[in-house]
Design a protein around this nucleic acid. Structure first.
Length: 481
RNA sequence: GCGGCUGUAGUGUAGUGGCUAGCACUUGAGCCUUCCAAGCUCACGACCCGGGUUCAAAUCCCGGCAGCCGCACCA
């Protein structure tokens, strides 16, 4: 049995439109997947929105007009004219091939570029083979609004971030002109990947949790709480260390990033190590080189998690210093002023983006939790993200035990997600809960009818303690040490 | 998008031209059951989709879709 089997069989996630053979890059969530996702997202909200009273969550549409992506730069940078070698099947960017030969490709159509390639007898740089016709490849899904003729173009957003940037002006006013200001969106984004691979890892429709922090660029090298975290040991995989393949543990102050950026690195690392309980050795920050960085990023470190299912460290999210790229871009595009005026000081705020791929994080949480023991398969989720907090069982299905257990179940479900089961042997019911990661099982037996106590079983140790029914809720919801 | 391999109940598999498509686990109903996948009875459930070859296709051929691996792509 493997992790993906459990995900499928128990209803965490499975291929979308499965009965029609599915479609690569699209997955649906089953009930446990929804619970897990909801808990991850709520944990994320509780943690990151608590950083500052001026950090709030908003929501925005997934469809946005073309002008938004002209201003953001996505139309240009997300859109490549590709040509493929008919011999060795390597793909090249046609505009780059032309510009290497001194031909100005900017603004040319695909046909014109194809013709220009032919006219100059440009062939495959790798094998000299003939090149195919030029076709636009757009990472964004294109839509047309209204009647087909009306040609009002729009796109599915490739990142939730744009929703925050287009809302900036209004939300800044709504939140009474405070800087820094944080706008978070948890929602869907869409990327038309050429070839989605690795199942649930690279999706065409994905969930993101992103926080855009707007701040005064002059304050890039300061943060009121920096002192408290400057000595924190950070797990760092810098560009310079790649040859050695070595992850360093160094204090934050030696990482070499501005304080505002560094403070948030420390906060994010704590989120993984302390809240999600990722083992220290399975977490690192990976610095991206200039070529790897997106067109808008000035400083970029990714959070990476080591998983067995993906066979190594893989990106779970990133911290992006986007400068004024977005607000200035939208200022030009919309002709609306994005400049703020704080006590007479005028500036366009800069953006620090904390970006998380929700689906990826869920996959990684599953991978880290997945444990095969001799007698059982267990998902050792931290309680904060476990789909169910507890399960309630009658020891046997007779003599009034089910009724008593069901009463407890009804009582607990008002407060948290719990599961009730009276089918099969008690051992089997425990194992089923182990396999979906429920931290606690509550069992009602004959003594319960006498004295109102129940047994509470711990998922990881399988130890049981006897407690008063009235103490159950606090016992199962106590924060983990 | 290219090349190689693959596709049988929920899962893992048997079946290589003619079978009522077999088995195990799972699931459901019942019996039994006073704490860790026990046992017994019964039941549900599958040949990825579409064409073709053939008297006959799960099996052979072609196409599609999906998965895995390599190449490319990954803002």
């Amino acid at each position: 049995m493997s992790l993906m089997d459990v995900a499928l069989r128990r209803g965490f996630f499975y291929p979308s439109s499965e009965i029609y053979g599915g479609s690569a890059g699209f997955y649906d969530f089953g009930h446990l997947g929804v619970l897990l996702k909801r808990k991850f997202e709520n944990t994320w909200r509780n943690y990151f929105l608590a950083l500052n009273p001026n950090f709030v969550e908003i929501d925005a549409t997934t469809i946005m007009p073309e002008a938004v992506f002209e201003a953001s730069g996505h139309l240009k940078s997300f859109n490549d004219p590709l040509t493929e070698c008919t011999e060795c099947h390597v793909r090249h960017k046609a505009d780059l091939l032309l510009e290497e030969k001194g031909v100005e490709a900017e603004g040319l159509t695909a046909e014109e570029m194809g013709k220009a390639l032919q006219d100059r007898e440009i062939r495959c740089p790798r094998c000299g083979g003939e090149l195919s016709e030029v076709r636009w490849f757009n990472m964004m899904f294109e839509l047309s609004l209204g009647a087909a003729e009306a040609d009002e173009k729009a796109y599915l957003r490739p990142e939730t971030a744009q929703g925050c940037y287009v809302s900036f002006k209004r939300m800044f006013e709504v939140l009474r002109n405070q800087i820094p200001m944080g706008l978070a969106i948890l929602g869907r984004a869409y990327r038309n990947e050429i070839s989605p691979r690795q199942g649930f890892y690279r999706l065409r429709e994905l969930n993101q949790a992103e926080l855009q922090i707007f701040f005064d660029p002059e304050c890039l090298d300061e943060h009121p709480c920096y002192e408290a975290v400057q000595d924190q040991m950070m797990r760092i995989y810098a560009v310079a260390d790649r040859e050695k393949g070595e992850i360093k543990e160094i204090p934050l102050r030696e990482v070499g990033v501005p304080k505002f950026y560094g403070y948030h690195m420390a906060i994010v690392q704590d989120f993984y190590l302390k809240v999600l309980k990722v083992p220290r050795e399975k977490f690192r920050f990976r610095e991206l080189s200039e070529e790897e960085r997106a067109f808008y990023n000035r400083i970029h470190w990714d959070m990476e998690i080591f998983t067995d299912v993906l066979g190594g460290f893989k990106e779970a999210g990133g911290i992006h210093y986007r400068g004024d790229h977005d607000l200035s871009g939208h200022e030009r595009g919309s002709k609306k002023k994005m400049e703020v005026n704080i006590q007479g000081k005028k500036f366009v705020p800069h953006v620090l983006e904390l970006s998380f791929g929700v689906d990826r994080n869920l996959l990684m949480l599953l991978d880290l939790a997945y444990t095969e023991e001799e007698e059982r398969t267990v998902l050792k989720f931290p309680s904060v993200v476990a789909p169910y907090r507890a399960a309630v069982f009658p020891l046997v299905s007779k003599d009034g035990l089910p009724e008593f257990a069901y009463e407890i179940y009804q009582e607990l479900r008002m407060e948290c997600d719990v599961f009730f089961d009276e089918k099969g042997s008690i051992g089997k019911r425990y194992r089923r809960q182990d396999e979906i990661g429920t931290p606690f099982s509550v069992t009602v037996d004959y003594d319960s009818l006498e004295d109102g106590t129940v047994t509470l079983r711990d998922r990881d140790t399988m130890d049981q303690v006897r407690i008063q029914r009235g103490n159950l809720l606090s016992a199962i919801t106590l924060p983990e040490v």
